[in-house]
Structure formats: structure tokens, C-alpha cells
């Protein structure tokens, strides 16, 4: 299989206007991913499936990831003019990252027995602009998995043949796998509460040190 850089070059030629970038993966697994923009994702997916060298006909895994917006403080060395001389000064800088939901696709090829190629698509924000194109018309295996992402994360896949909740019941509100999901207050007594469960317990009654002895 070609390297990711070669795939990106050919993708840009095959789907004009597509914005494809490589996101490096620092772990020893070495599985770098391709970030694609939502507008050209469907055309790109068709090309990946039908290109005679890649033939990525098997979409193995479709995942959702929630990246809430976080602010990190980074130390950066900047060249500045101090007292008339140019020196390197360490400055702290606030870096914002996240604030979107992400759909990750792992693609393999059964014909050519190679893979994986990891595709990523990001929504614009986590509140109202959560639409992404559905890749179910290209790979049918995404059908149930995209429904699950809609159910648990809230990404609305446009073009999905049957987008409704799959694991939670239909009248359920909210999306459980988001990082800011608040569970309903349905605490039941339990004898050994810890940490978060203990905090919930305190709202309902005063837990004694367990062991009624």
C-alpha cells in the first residue's frame, strides 16, 4: 500500500478541492490518520473504495470521539528584543483546542489485504452545527455504527437511510457518551460508596461509615 503522503497526493488530484491533512499519531502503533473536510468526504470515500490500487472496500470501525474545548497553557520560546539585545524569552501562551465532535473511520481492503487507513471528520461545534455527511452509501457497515454515534454523541449524519437511536430508547434525551453528560439523579442505596457515588449519596442521606456493626 502506498504511504499516506502518496495517498493524500493522489486524493487531492482525484477529488479537486478536497482538504486532506495528515494527523500524526505519537504512540508506537504508528497509525496516522487523514483529516478530511465534510464537504468532500463522500466523494473522497467513493474514490478510496473504487481506486484500483487502494480498493478499501471494508469499513471496519466507525467511532465517535468528543473533544470538548480545553484551554492549555503552553510555554513557548520567542525571540524578543530586550534591553536593545535580541534574546530568546520564554512566554506562556494560552492554546485552545477541541470544541468539536469527531467521527473516525478505520478502512481496510479485503481484496488487497492491506490497511488500515484512518479517516477523521470533525463537526463545527458541539452545540448546533453537528452535521456530517454519512458514509453509509459507500460502506454499508457504517449504517448501525453511525446510528450509534448519533445516539451516544449527537452527530447528525446527513444522507443516512435510517437515522434514529439504536442503543438507548427512542424518547431518550441527551447523548450519554459526551464528556459533559449529567446522569439523572436516580441514586439507590449501596453499602460501599466511593468518590463520585459517595458525592451523589450525600445529597440523599448521610452515609454512615458502612458496617452497621
Amino acid at each position: 500500500m502506498d504511504t499516506l503522503e502518496q495517498i493524500v497526493a493522489r486524493a487531492r488530484a482525484a477529488v479537486p478541492g478536497a482538504q486532506v491533512t495528515i494527523l500524526p499519531n505519537e504512540s508506537p502503533s504508528g497509525q496516522h490518520s487523514l483529516l478530511v473536510d465534510a464537504a468532500h468526504a463522500l466523494a473522497l470515500a467513493r474514490w478510496l473504495r473504487d481506486d484500483p490500487d487502494l480498493r478499501l472496500d471494508y469499513c471496519s470501525n466507525v467511532t465517535g470521539v468528543d473533544w470538548p474545548e480545553v484551554e492549555r497553557v503552553e510555554k513557548v520560546r520567542v525571540k524578543k528584543v530586550v534591553d536593545g539585545a535580541e534574546t530568546e524569552v520564554e512566554e506562556t501562551r494560552k492554546v485552545r483546542s477541541g470544541g468539536y465532535l469527531e467521527a473516525v473511520y478505520h478502512l481496510y481492503s479485503m481484496h488487497k489485504r492491506h490497511g488500515p487507513v484512518v479517516l477523521r471528520m470533525r463537526t463545527e461545534n458541539r452545540a448546533d452545527r453537528v452535521q456530517l455527511p454519512s458514509l453509509t452509501p459507500v460502506w454499508r457497515s457504517a449504517e448501525f455504527q453511525e446510528r450509534e454515534i448519533y445516539d451516544l454523541f449527537g452527530i447528525v449524519f446527513e444522507g443516512h437511510p435510517d437515522l434514529r437511536r439504536i442503543l438507548m430508547w427512542d424518547e431518550f434525551k441527551d447523548h450519554p457518551m459526551r464528556k459533559d453528560y449529567v446522569e439523572p439523579d436516580d441514586y439507590e442505596w449501596e453499602p460501599t460508596p466511593h468518590d463520585a457515588v459517595l458525592a451523589k449519596a450525600r445529597k440523599h442521606f448521610t452515609p454512615t461509615t458502612s458496617s452497621g456493626a
Binding site: 460501599t192 466511593h194 461509615t209 458502612s210
Partner: peptide, 13 residues
């Protein structure tokens, strides 16, 4: 053991 227990069923004072 209390910290590592996955369902947190141990309670130690």
C-alpha cells in the same frame, strides 16, 4: 486494593 478494585466494592477505614 480499594483503589484498584474496578467496581469499587471494598471499603477501608
Amino acid at each position: 486494593c480499594e483503589k484498584e478494585c474496578p467496581p469499587q466494592c471494598i471499603y477501608i477505614v
